[in-house]
Amino acid sequence: MKKVTAFAPATVANVSCGFDILGFAVEEMGDKVTVSLADEPGVRVVRIEGDGGRLPYEVDKNTCGVALKAFLAAIDYKGGLEVELYKGLPLGSGMGSSAASSVAALEAANQLLGNPLDKKALLPFAMKAEGVACGAEHADNVAPSLLGGFVLIRSYHPLDVTKLHVPKGLYCALVHPHLELNTADSRSVLRQQVPLKDAITQSGNIAGLVAGLYQEDMGLISRSLQDVIAEPSRSVLIPGFDEIKSAIKEVGALGVGISGSGPTTFILAPSREVAERASEICQEVFDKIGLEVDLYVSAVNTKGTYVINKA
């Protein structure tokens, strides 16, 4: 093989109560990256498409480049790689755009070089790229994009990540308004101290959500999709959020939350039909606001990143 192309899916991070520790992957939407062997040592980004000319080609500023440099250093590879990035996700969308790029690059490079590491071992390199993209090496986007499904980050020091059960029939709707919300700005509005009563409530909701996933208890999942820490500060930055939150349960949706740092909103539903009806309600809300939105309905992607072409 001289080159490999991989796909990595979009993700929903935080999942309401799981700030920085929970995330899940979605289907179809994502980024593609082609990694090729090169004569010149090191990593070079040679093509970027779909970004409107905004992403940097400098290796130390590009998430693909940062992740691959760390990966090559870890396996002590002295050769060269060239990277082509094809963006399928909008920037600053709250759908794990930077994570999908770095994860696809790592999957392609790992396959190209003979799979020296398993998938989970690639996670720290993708986290380094997240540090460059948004100022924090969090894993709740990169882990589900890499591994698929729902993922829990139990600990960052040491890193301890595990996949969770995905109930049959669980769907999500993603509502992406046509505006950009910078992750660093969205993190800056968060409280630095949390009252004890809020910490207790949040802990109960996290435990309830995990239990609901394993028990396939949609009612428990619904009751647990409550965020008392990040959402109150962040929701004011997202037009239509309160209206959507009050309207979607009328059609049987389980709950609504902010995807990552926003502005995308996610809705969990017990079926595709409910997810589609919830997305229609969201369209009505944004039509009244006068803001264009993109709507996506998807099952939870349990596959994660994968190779789509080898040559």
Results as ranks from 00 to 15, higher is better:
1 M>C: 09
2 K>F: 09
5 T>G: 09
8 A>P: 03
10 A>I: 12
12 V>G: 02
14 N>Y: 05
26 V>D: 03
28 E>G: 00
31 D>R: 06
33 V>A: 04
46 V>W: 07
46 V>K: 13
48 I>Q: 11
52 G>N: 11
53 G>R: 05
57 Y>C: 00
57 Y>I: 05
58 E>K: 15
66 V>R: 07
73 A>M: 05
76 D>Q: 15
80 G>M: 08
90 P>W: 02
95 M>T: 13
97 S>F: 06
112 L>K: 14
113 L>A: 11
115 N>R: 15
116 P>W: 12
118 D>H: 11
121 A>N: 14
126 A>R: 13
137 E>R: 15
137 E>S: 13
144 P>N: 13
148 G>W: 10
150 F>C: 08
155 S>K: 15
161 V>T: 12
172 C>K: 01
172 C>N: 00
174 L>M: 03
176 H>I: 08
179 L>I: 14
185 D>A: 11
186 S>R: 10
196 L>Y: 12
196 L>E: 02
198 D>Q: 04
200 I>E: 02
209 L>D: 01
210 V>W: 05
212 G>A: 07
215 Q>F: 08
216 E>M: 01
217 D>Q: 03
229 I>C: 02
232 P>F: 00
234 R>I: 04
240 G>F: 08
253 A>D: 04
256 V>L: 15
259 S>G: 07
261 S>P: 06
261 S>Q: 07
264 T>D: 03
268 L>W: 06
273 E>Q: 12
273 E>S: 12
281 I>M: 12
283 Q>W: 05
284 E>D: 13
288 K>G: 08
289 I>G: 11
291 L>V: 15
294 D>L: 11
308 I>E: 14
